[in-house]
Nucleic acid binder design. Structure first.
Lengths: 240, 240
DNA sequence: CGAAGGCTTGATAGACCTCAAACACAGTGG
DNA sequence: CCACTGTGTTTGAGGTCTATCAAGCCTTCG
């Protein structure tokens, strides 16, 4: 059932059929969450991890002045809550951006899986390392690039990551994120996001209809966003 | 010999004396590097990890326009290169900011240590997760805070992390980072770093003499920097 | 002693923010 | 079916934070 999650784990680090089975067996029945709900809350000491099966979520941090900083986007196939296995209480929350289905797996079950299949331990670790690589890229994005490049870069990253789990058809994908949300991800105001998106449209690089984004000129978008997909380490693609 | 590294690993995740011994035995003879050298280079496929024993280093990313973004600071006791075990080629480089002594341990040895002591596997994973938490905090720092707060926050983080390995005496510590370097870490120009530091001094929050930083008003600094040390997960301190 | 790099200061410019208002759209209730 | 409300988008105007440029000074080091 959790196709993307399994396929992605499989491709990431040569997981065997057997290990995949054991992992799938340890997953609970998926729960449906509505948009705007919390999957994990900042400061919680959870004893389980969440796997996002369908939908869109954001990892985010609430600052003391009330502002929200989005730290990364969570897409289907992501074991979004793995750090909570070793980091308690967790320093950020994960919130749904659209309706989502989420499966849970207890920390105890994860530890048992790792004990039984050390290879899975490396696979989980690998997941968190890629998350780390994404954070690093975002540091560079926020610290070094203009608003125009930042927005382009985020779109590039999403396109490549969504492609990995077969969620891009043609050059188009769904992006259930408001302009305010994009602002919280890129450190820009919603107003400026609006103007930046308009520029990307005006220059024929993307078109946007509601929540649907279509990349019209991928090469130009990567150029503008200074994007190199190396940091995503997505050698193993899942067929669309 | 590698006091800090061992002590820190020990405190991080209840490593036993025995595991510590095996780890120390696997470390090669430390090498001395001069300031400005590369410990690991962006794009390399290394087969070893580096442990920083003494000195200061920075994790950094070279952008296509030639700019450098500092992603985090590496201080004594950090196994700075752990992601390279599973992420090849590595997406960033690590450069010394001062003269450093560095010990190396092969990936093969690390894998063997983990096989022999699963607990060490979790300890290493934990290290990388804390690095991830630091990246997240930096995303928030760069995305949501003013220049004044950003600089204050970086100073807060360094003070707490250096304290953990006993490198703060009184309220003072060495910081072999140029103002240009602070700019590359905070996404600000060197000129503005200069003015921001002047403001922090003028307001009696810090004093700076050459490479030595002294925190005069810690509470005010944390307030200005919106700093909460939770994300560093440094429950286990090493006595100074 | 000269050169190079880092720090400091002033002036100007520009990128992005804030405020404000109008518009579009979906969901809700009468 | 139609107001009504709330959220998201769009546009304009003005303001501010931070960058850039430029020059002078200081320290370090060969």
């Amino acid at each position: 059932m959790p196709i993307h999650a399994l396929a992605k784990l499989r491709s990431n680090l040569g997981i065997s059929e057997r290990e995949l089975k054991d992992f799938a067996a340890a997953l609970g029945i998926p729960r449906i969450l509505r948009a705007g709900e919390e999957i994990v809350g900042q400061g919680e000491q959870s004893d389980f991890c969440a796997v996002l099966l369908t939908g869109f979520a954001s990892r985010q941090r609430l600052l003391t002045n009330g502002d929200i900083q989005i730290l990364s986007f969570v897409i289907p196939g992501d074991m979004c809550d793995l750090p909570s296995l070793l980091l308690k209480p967790i320093d950020h929350s994960i919130c749904t951006l659209s309706d989502c289905s989420v499966a849970y797996i207890s920390h105890a079950a994860i530890r048992k899986l790792i004990a039984d299949h050390p290879c899975l331990g490396y696979a989980f670790w690998h997941e968190t390392l890629i998350d780390g690589a994404i954070f690093r890229e975002w540091v560079a994005n926020l610290g070094s690039r203009s608003a125009y490049a930042r927005v382009a870069h985020v779109l590039c990253e999403l396109k490549v990551r969504l492609e990995t789990v077969g969620l891009v058809s043609g050059h188009q994908f769904d992006l259930p994120v408001t302009q305010r949300g994009l602002g919280q991800a890129t450190g820009l105001s919603a107003v400026h996001i609006n103007r930046t998106l308009q520029r990307l449209k005006r220059e024929g690089i993307v078109t946007i209809n509601g929540k649907s984004v279509s990349i019209e000129d991928w090469q130009q978008l990567t150029l503008v966003g200074d994007f190199d997909d190396g940091y995503l380490y997505n050698k193993g693609r899942v067929a669309a």
